[in-house]
Amino acid sequence: TFELKGKVGKVVKIAEDHYLVEVEGDKWIAYSDEKLSLGDRVMVVDVDGLKLKAKRIP
């Protein structure tokens, strides 16, 4: 999973306390310091076990 750092994905679902992000065809649980919206493009900035930390990108 460490190779996911720096990869770009898309928010495909918003849950109460996390997001579901699709990166290279796989879906991952993600969290972010900022509020994300459905369809936002994100970059993986860190990997915490099986969770990704994501940041919105333009």
Rank of each mutant, 00 (worst) to 15 (best):
A54R: 00
K13L: 11
D26W: 13
D26V: 13
D46C: 05
D17S: 11
V21W: 00
V11M: 02
S37A: 12
H18Q: 11
E16Y: 13
Y31S: 12
A54T: 15
G39D: 14
D33Q: 07
L52H: 01
K13D: 11
E34K: 04
Y19R: 00
K10T: 10
D46K: 03
D33K: 05
L36R: 00
V12M: 10
K51Q: 07
E3N: 04
V23Q: 02
K53T: 11
L36Y: 03
A15G: 10
K51A: 09
D26A: 12
G6A: 02
D26M: 14
R56W: 10
V8D: 10
L50S: 12
F2H: 15
V23G: 02
K7M: 05
A54F: 06
G6V: 01
Y31L: 14
T1C: 15
K27R: 11
S37T: 13
L4Y: 03
G9A: 08
K10D: 12
E34W: 04
P58Y: 11
G25N: 09
K7L: 05
Y31Q: 11
K53H: 10
V8A: 08
D33R: 05
E16M: 13
G25Q: 08
K51Y: 05
V42M: 05
K27S: 12
G25D: 08
L52P: 02
G6M: 02
K7Q: 07
K35I: 13
E24Y: 06
P58V: 10
M43Q: 11
H18D: 10
G39M: 10
L50K: 09
D40Q: 03
A30L: 03
E24M: 11
I57F: 10
L20Y: 12
D40T: 05
S32A: 15
D26P: 04
V12C: 09
E22C: 10
A54I: 15
G9D: 00
V47L: 05
L38C: 11
E3L: 04
D48K: 06
K13A: 12
D40K: 01
E34N: 07
I57L: 13
H18P: 00
V44E: 00
K10F: 12
T1L: 14
V45Y: 03
K10C: 13
K27D: 11
A15M: 13
S32Y: 01
D48A: 06
H18K: 09
R56M: 06
L20F: 12
A15V: 15
L4E: 08
L4A: 05
L4H: 03
K10I: 12
V11F: 00
K27T: 09
L52Q: 01
D17C: 11
V47Q: 13
E24A: 08
Y31E: 12
E22A: 08
G25C: 10
R56D: 01
A15Q: 12
K27N: 09
V44S: 01
L38Y: 09
K13N: 12
L4D: 08
S32L: 03
K35S: 11
D33P: 07
V12A: 06
I29R: 09
V8E: 14
K5T: 14
L52T: 02
L4I: 14
M43W: 04
Y19F: 09
V42R: 00
E3Y: 06
V47S: 07
H18L: 12
V11L: 04
E24T: 05
W28L: 03
R56I: 06
P58K: 06
A15C: 11
W28E: 02
G39W: 13
T1G: 15
R41I: 13
A54L: 15
K13R: 10
G39A: 09
K27V: 09
E16H: 12
V44C: 04
D40A: 05
S37P: 02
K13E: 12
E24P: 01
L52M: 04
K51E: 08
S37K: 10
S32W: 01
K55G: 08
P58C: 14
D17I: 09
I14D: 08
E16Q: 11
G9Q: 00
E24R: 03
E34Q: 08
A54H: 01
M43F: 06
L36I: 05
D26H: 14
E3M: 02
D17W: 10
L38R: 07
Y31N: 11
G49C: 04
G25F: 08
T1D: 15
D46M: 03
Y19H: 02
W28Q: 02
G6Y: 02
V21C: 06
S37Q: 12
V42D: 00
G25E: 07
A54K: 01
V11R: 00
P58M: 09
G6S: 02
P58L: 09
V42C: 08
A30V: 04
R56F: 07
K7S: 06
I29M: 13
V47M: 08
Y19Q: 02
Y19C: 07
I14V: 14
V12W: 07
E16F: 13
K55L: 06
L38E: 09
T1W: 15
E22P: 00
K53D: 04
A54W: 07
W28N: 02
V21N: 00
R41A: 14
K13M: 11
D17H: 10
L50M: 14
L50F: 14
V8M: 11
G39E: 12
L36K: 00
G49E: 06
A54G: 04
G25R: 07
V47R: 06
K35C: 13
M43E: 15
L50V: 10
V47E: 04
A54M: 14
D46H: 05
V42Q: 00
E16V: 12
L50H: 12
G6P: 01
F2D: 15
K35Q: 13
V12Y: 08
K5F: 15
Y19N: 02
R41F: 15
V11C: 09
A15E: 12
V45A: 05
K55H: 05
V11E: 00
E24I: 09
K7N: 04
K53N: 06
L52N: 01
V11H: 00
H18N: 10
T1N: 15
V45F: 03
G25I: 04
D33C: 07
L38D: 07
K53V: 03
V42A: 04
V11G: 00
K51R: 12
R41T: 14
V8N: 07
S37R: 11
V12E: 05
G25H: 09
Y31F: 11
L20R: 04
D48V: 14
L20M: 11
D17Y: 09
